Computed example of a mutant assay.
Amino acid sequence: MNPIPGLASRSLQLSDLLVLDVTRISPLGWLAVGCLIAYLAGAVSLWVRGRRWSVLGTISFVLGCVAWFAATGLAVNDYASDLITALVFQVITLLVAAPPLLLMGSPGRLLLRATPHRGLGCLVLRAAIAAQRSRAARILLHPIVAILVAIVALPGLFFTDAISWIMAAPGGHQVLLALLLAFGVIGGAPLWALDPLPRKPSFGVRLAGAFLELQIHALFGLVLLRSASGMLSWYAAEPEGWGISRALDQSLSGSLVWTYGQLPLIVVLIITLSKWRRSDMRGARHRQLAEDEALDAYNAYLAQAADPVASGTTRKDPA
């Protein structure tokens, strides 16, 4: 695929990858637009009926859809077959950047609150509740799945050169992006979701999962930074017309992993530690109140036992 006309004489710039051409938006890009419209329609319907819905949650979901569209609906989607940097940008966005924003928008709660409880809406609600309570959901939302997703989606695909096989297959690129988004939502749900989940991991498990994912991303980014060009057979040739070498292209992709790819996980660590501390402080206050109440009750019992009038006994006159 040839780059945008006019780029042959200058080096790659981020703005070149963010060009919008409506006629070349992928199906995944249109799906992002559809999800955004459906979410806003649900939120507006609640506001019109005078029911509360989080503005911050709405903003978060909108930003998630924007990130999703940026990875699949802009020029970067076309140029991922030429540039490793473009492909890695898509992978990181759909795997670790867009899912947290989508999950913090609580789309599940919005579905339950905004969907009509009659007709087709009733069937949709029953299907959603059945899926939420299913055994498959409990398995997919296990914290270990997030770690497996990080291993398969980054080192697994790139170090085995499976990416080249996928890119060579008809429609393989778009199928890969769809799976990455699904895996990102599944893997991110235990860390980010505000909707009720069939399995709620402890703070310790969340910290361990986020820390392990950080190490996987760090290793993956380091290999991209330090390895020679030609690691992937699909990207063996030099990217003609972009003004950069393949080695620089690969190094830029590694830098993306180390910066853009690590940031969401660092935020997870900070938020989880903060929530864990607040939870421990609330627990300590509740335990202290319970102990104080028990001590007060015991002191009242001792006072009552020591008071002969309160205990119902009278002292007789010795005469």
Rank of each mutant, 00 (worst) to 15 (best):
L17N: 00
L17C: 11
L18K: 12
L18T: 06
L18V: 08
L18C: 09
L18S: 09
V19C: 04
V19R: 11
L20M: 08
L20G: 10
L20W: 07
D21G: 04
D21F: 15
V22K: 06
V22C: 09
V22P: 01
V22Y: 06
V22R: 08
T23W: 15
T23C: 08
T23N: 13
T23F: 14
R24F: 13
R24E: 07
I25F: 00
I25H: 10
I25W: 05
I25Y: 06
I25T: 04
S26Q: 10
S26M: 07
S26P: 11
S26R: 06
P27G: 07
P27S: 09
P27R: 09
P27L: 13
L28V: 11
L28S: 09
L28W: 03
L28F: 00
L28K: 11
L28I: 12
G29M: 05
L31M: 10
L31K: 05
L31N: 01
A32I: 12
A32M: 07
V33W: 11
V33T: 14
V33M: 13
V33K: 09
V33H: 07
V33A: 13
V33Y: 07
G34P: 13
G34N: 03
G34K: 01
G34D: 05
C35F: 11
L36S: 14
L36E: 15
L36H: 15
L36V: 03
I37Q: 03
I37A: 13
I37S: 06
A38S: 12
A38Y: 08
A38P: 10
A38Q: 10
Y39N: 11
Y39I: 06
L40W: 11
L40V: 09
A41H: 14
G42D: 01
G42K: 00
A43Y: 00
A43G: 00
A43T: 11
V44E: 03
V44R: 10
V44T: 14
S45A: 01
S45I: 02
S45D: 05
S45K: 02
S45F: 04
S45L: 04
L46R: 03
L46P: 02
L46Q: 00
L46A: 02
W47P: 00
W47E: 07
W47R: 14
W47H: 08
V48I: 14
R49V: 05
